[in-house]
Structures are given as C-alpha cells and as structure tokens.
Design a protein around this nucleic acid. Structure first.
Lengths: 223, 223
DNA sequence: ATAAACAAACCGACTTGACTGTTCGTAAAA
DNA sequence: TTTTACGAACAGTCAAGTCGGTTTGTTTAT
C-alpha cells in the first residue's frame, strides 16, 4: 500500500495542504460557476477530497467561503505591499499603477468579488465576518497610495482620493465587461484615465501647466 | 368600457395588471433578497397571487427575471430620454448630470444589476436575452451624452468617453458602498469627480485654464 | 524500539428542507 | 361553450448538514 504513496506527512502539513486545496478550489468554483452555483459538492470535487473531509475542517459552507475569500484578499494584499515597496524604490509612473490596478482587478479578483458582494447585502453575518478582511485589503491599497504620494511629493489625502477614484473606475469598467464586450472601449477609457491621473500628479521637473506636454507625453509614454 | 375598479376587467387588463405586479415584485425581491434568494414562491407572494398563476404567464423562472429586468431598464430608459430632452432645453450643468446619474444608479438600479450581473457570466442563454435589453439602455444614455455634447459644443466622442467614465466611477462607488459604509468618502469622491467633469467641459464663454485633451487621437493604436 | 492507545484526517450514506416545473381543477371573461 | 386567468397539490431535484465508520498519523507504555 505504500507504493507511490507520498512520504509521510505530518498531521499539520496534511491539514495545511488540504485547507489550501479547499481555499483554492472554492475561489475557482466561485469564479467559474458563480455564487449560486457554488456547492460544497463541487468544491470538494475540485479540491479532490470528500465532502465529509471538508466538514471536518469547516462546520459550514459559509465558513469555507469566508476563509477562502479572506485568504484570497490577503494574498493579493501581500502582492500589493510588495509592489508598493518595489514601486517606491524604483520610482514608477502613474500609468504603471493604473495598469497594475486594472491587471490584478481583472485577473479574477473583482469578478470573484462581484460573486460574493451581493450576498453581503443580504447576509449580515457574512458581511460582519468580511468587513475586517476588506479593511485589511484597503490598508494594502493605502500603502501603495502613500508610496505614490511620497514619490510624487503630493499630499496624501489628494493621492488617496485620486487613487480610490481610480479603483472605482476600474471596478465599474470590469462590471461592464460582463455584458459589454468591446475591447476598444475599455482600452480607450483606460488610456483616458491614465492621462487624467498623469495630469493630477504633475511631475516636479515637468510642470503640467502646459497641457500640450501632457498630450505629447501621453502619446510617447512608456507602457 | 370597464372603468370600474376590480369589477369587470377585461382579460387583457387583468393580464396586464398581473404582469405588472409580477414584474414589480420580481425587482423588489431581487433587490431585497438577492438573486440566490429570489424564488418564484416569494415573487408570487409579494405579487399577491399564486405560483400557479405565474406559470400561466411565464413558463420559467428565467422568463420572469428577463421580463422584469427588461421592464426595469426600459422604464429607466424612458426617464433618461425625458431627462435628456428637458436638460437640453433648459441647459443644465455637468454637475447636475453627475448627480442625476448617481441618483438613479443608487436608487436600486445598480444594486439590482449587481444581483443578476454575475448570473450572466454563467448562463449563456440568460446573457443572450439580456444583451439587447442592455443595448437599448446604453442608447438611452447616449441620448443624454449627445444632448450634453450639443449644449457644451464638445465633440460627441469626447463627451461619450467622459460620461461613460462617469458611469464607471459611479458603478464602482456603488459596488463599494456594500462593504464600505462611509458617507463622507463617497460625497468627497463625487465632489471631486464633478470638478473633473466640469474641467473637461469648459464653458464656451469662460474658457478653462487647461484646454481639453485630445483623447480620441491618443488611443488610436490600442487593441 | 515497538505495539497499543489515542487523536486527527477523511469518507460515504442518510435526513431534511427548499425550490422548480408540472398537472390537475376552478372561476371569470369572451 | 370555449378560452383565458388563476389556484392547489404533486413530483423530481439538489444542496447542506449530520453521523457512524475507516484510515492515517502521533503519543505513550512496555
């Protein structure tokens, strides 16, 4: 029976691996099948274990979802912190930030968010357990905004305002992608928004009082 | 000529009234209970009739939803057209438009949208039947954008871009209201955005300090 | 060191409840 | 009467939670 079996894992390892598989499977099912179609049966199938095993680790479906979502957001959070740090050290452009936001939001995050977001409107317990998680996520975002503010020498509150608006623009765009399939539409809007952000964060060496400079740099900007 | 109340209605009247009640109840349940909690049992209860009666008018739950959503969007559409016309005649401000968008989007529309939007990602038939409805809705929006463009003497494509971005900002903000309860946050963002739009539509008599960007030519090569 | 005792991880079946679609039957209008 | 609007009960499905049992890893006594 020990043929091809994995080397003996410790209970803790076994548990951690299984939990990770469940979390990953949950997000995957949530993304691919949607909230109402996310069943514990399917999560178990994707995770490659029995439903009974899941009940050992989680006492309810809601527990599984909360855990998976928290895990997902924390994971993104770590990447955000890493990006912020590297961005500040390197001295990146605002265009880059907008692109980065669009990228990680489009890559599942906001689609998954749109799956569980409505649930929080109708499930007070679910919402209460999610709010602290989301607050941690916002803290991660603020880290980037602060890094940007320091680098550009812009006031923090102004930076936060502009960047939070950027987040909203991206959220709205991604929501629209579901029923409006028009690549050019989003590309154009993203370009427009990047030029707006650029203008709102004028480079110290290149004052933005000259609008032509902005337009020119918009065309020739690195991307 | 049945002018009376419940007495002596014609079949067509009876049917139309019932359909209207079902539509209204569907949107209400969708808004208050959420997509996954929207059952035909509850819709029937709210509409004040039996489930069997609904099956006479609709052959499936999906039919009910599609019909109700289409009805809701068409209703908003009519109001949008009316607003656009009155706005053009009167000569309103861009601030007013932003406020109006925020208002009708916050007032149920986008919350309801967020309920059924994920479903369209996982139900091809549902999506196919919804796309034309949404396109009509977009046409209604374009009517306002055109009215604004004419009034401000701005290019139509530029106007559409800015206003569609406005829609995205508002969508993103409303999505965020679900998990972030911070009235000041949204008020500030809305104020900021209004100032942005104001700047992007300089009054002809009082030119803005910065000419508008030629955004449409800046993104011609995008995918 | 090894085997028994224990605990954790895992599995499969059962129970309950809710929901959709269907199939009748009844009342109102044409 | 015929058609249309409406109602009540039924049947099939499916998902969540529960529970007894099995396997795997850990501890302890000898």
């Amino acid at each position: 029976m020990a043929v091809g079996k994995k080397t003996a894992r410790t209970q803790e390892e076994r548990s951690a691996e299984t939990l990770a598989r469940i979390r990953q499977a949950t997000i995957e099912v949530l993304y691919k099948k949607g909230f109402s179609r996310t069943s514990t049966v399917e999560i178990a199938a994707v995770a490659g274990l029995s439903r009974g095993a899941m009940t050992h680790h989680f006492s309810s479906k809601e527990d599984i979802l909360i855990d998976a979502i928290a895990s997902m957001l924390d994971e993104v959070n770590e990447k955000l912190f890493a990006f912020a740090e590297e961005f500040a050290r390197r001295g990146g452009s605002t265009d880059e930030i907008v692109d980065y936001i669009w990228q990680f939001m489009s890559d599942r995050l906001f689609y998954v968010t749109m799956e569980y977001l409505p649930e929080t409107r109708h499930n007070a317990d679910f919402k209460a357990r999610l709010v602290p998680v989301v607050k941690r996520f916002h803290a991660g975002l603020d880290a980037i905004w602060s890094a940007l503010a320091r680098q550009k020498g812009a006031p923090e509150d102004h930076t936060r305002l502009v960047m939070n608006t950027t987040m909203c623009v991206v959220r709205g765009m991604i929501a629209q992608t579901i029923l409006r399939d028009d690549q050019g539409y989003y590309a154009q809007m993203l370009t427009f928004w990047k030029s707006e952000v650029r203008r709102l964060f004028p480079s110290p060496d290149k004052p933005a009082s000259e609008p032509q400079l902005n337009v020119t740099s918009a065309n020739g900007a690195l991307s």
